[in-house]
Design a protein around this nucleic acid. Sequence first.
DNA 1: GATGAATGAGGATTCATTCAT
DNA 2: AATGAATGAATCCTCATTCAT
Lengths: 190, 190, 190, 190
Amino acid sequence: MARPLSEQKREAILEAAVLLFARRGVWSTPTSAISAAARVAEGTLFTYFPTKEMLVNTVYAALKHELADALLSAYPKAADARVRFRHIWDRYVQWGVAHPEKFGVLVQLQASELISAESRTLGAAEFKEFDRLAKDSIRKKRIRNHPLPYLAAVMTSLADATIGFVAKNRNSRTDYGSTGFDIFWAGIEQ
Amino acid sequence: MARPLSEQKREAILEAAVLLFARRGVWSTPTSAISAAARVAEGTLFTYFPTKEMLVNTVYAALKHELADALLSAYPKAADARVRFRHIWDRYVQWGVAHPEKFGVLVQLQASELISAESRTLGAAEFKEFDRLAKDSIRKKRIRNHPLPYLAAVMTSLADATIGFVAKNRNSRTDYGSTGFDIFWAGIEQ
Amino acid sequence: MARPLSEQKREAILEAAVLLFARRGVWSTPTSAISAAARVAEGTLFTYFPTKEMLVNTVYAALKHELADALLSAYPKAADARVRFRHIWDRYVQWGVAHPEKFGVLVQLQASELISAESRTLGAAEFKEFDRLAKDSIRKKRIRNHPLPYLAAVMTSLADATIGFVAKNRNSRTDYGSTGFDIFWAGIEQ
Amino acid sequence: MARPLSEQKREAILEAAVLLFARRGVWSTPTSAISAAARVAEGTLFTYFPTKEMLVNTVYAALKHELADALLSAYPKAADARVRFRHIWDRYVQWGVAHPEKFGVLVQLQASELISAESRTLGAAEFKEFDRLAKDSIRKKRIRNHPLPYLAAVMTSLADATIGFVAKNRNSRTDYGSTGFDIFWAGIEQ
DNA sequence: GATGAATGAGGATTCATTCAT
DNA sequence: AATGAATGAATCCTCATTCAT
């Protein structure tokens, strides 16, 4: 048998891509820079990702997945709706603040025509726990009745906007994380 | 004597740029495509905009300005805070829905590393009426006290998220425009 | 008005291409080598020939045309059929011997999948004087009746084979040029 | 102990190469495509043929050999010169018509700079029966006296040209195979 | 100022070949 | 010997920008 594909190299490429995308922008980072940063030959990148576009979409999927994962650790399944929303909100914002490059790349990719419709659909599907929570809360009349995708968009956009403020105002009077959630919750609660 | 720069050509270039940026993405539209679409020679573009980056930033500024302008037409200066917020919200959303290419480009540019910090600052400054309204409303205790830039970000991000839903669901039951504003208002009112 | 396309540069590129194709083979000569040899920037080549394939097909057409032209100078229109055939034969062989690179490239291209069907058709059309002569000779029963394209192929292939021998045996006893024609004529005369 | 080289794999690679060379051209077929078609690993190809060039030359030699072989089956050693020439001619043309891919590749390689002088010499040597026949016929004054290599070239080039016409005009009035031989024979007979 | 040809650095891939398994 | 991942030089072409006309 030949050398097996190395998960380690794949990861290195993915990580290097995120880092460079964050620093220089997706379109301004050549694949050669990525392979160099990953300490891999230029050609090797293409044995793991057949095109740059595929690499970019994989980066997107990976980040979405990581973010979705972060939302669920220690998720208080049984708690009150507000508590659960707050948990998700907090994790979301914390992840963005803790991983500014990753978060920046996610935002960049969100707006990019490089991400296929399929990738977007798959990315959205990662957040099914949010959907469950929202549906449950609507049924229990804790929040007003809105289409689930819109609710998700509202939370995401608010959180995205919030992350920047938290990051840039760490020692300000205002706790943007809490403030943001309060706005969000007041906006949707019944 | 030298011919003076033609405002008409400048406009043609700018319009062509917006159209093509919307269709193909900023990075995937060569300046040559823009000059062709504007019916202008390749070199001419550079007598109006010394670099592509400058052109992009000018496009950004122009769109920001146009949007800001749209918010103010028939602005009910004397009306109640909620009415005025609603006016701005509606105009914002309407503009986005009515000019999908322009709106799309704005979103793209927002997330792009091509837009200089200066451009962003200038862009934000266009919305001083919003700031005035917000400050006034806080003083009058119609809305809770939040830093003005954050309030602006909250409204913008919510409206941005809303525009997509309005555009894609024109004949759905849900009136995303109103729904969105209700959420926004409930979120910030005192 | 801007700089006009330079016929001189076009020629230089074409000539450089022929030379390098002859030396290194079509597939082994990078466009960069051609532009360098033509003392032109790499990009310039592509303003004259949009793709390498187009360049190759143009080279082919140019050589075919040059060869066809050579056949006709001082063509004895009124002479006897044999004399006219001999004229064409001689000119063909002489051209091949006098321009070994060009001839070599033509042979190479003949066998290449880079030459489009269209190019081949156009190339064949250059030799209409031969067709006229052949048709006339058949009518006058100077040569046997064969389909014109086949007759052309017979002459061409024989001449092609002959050229190599003439070139490599300049001072041999055998005059391959005459010998070849004798074989050709004996083969087709009535 | 090491596994011995497998004649079967060698053949598979050679056959795959011919097929792909015919379809896509020698230069446009990557070795990886050949190994894939031969159901062999990419690296394996190189244990049988150290370089692509070697592989190509081997393909050439194999085809030349196969063709030469075809000429001799049921060769009428004792028959009249014309009959023997006709036999060789017919077999040659038939082989080309019956194996269009192989024939096409041979033509391609003939014109290619990939084939070493040595390969060409060895290839020519395969046709010694033709030389014997020619020498004999000259001595017996059945054909005119020409250098043997030139005679071979004349026949080969005529036959090559003929094969294309036979292949493309299977149900035409003209029997290009016979016609071609008649031309050839009339050209060389004494 | 307007034009569009000229420039050449840059970039995503490809591919023959090597080498670890 | 067989495998197929790893390598990196090489290639065609693009495109922002310059410059001759």
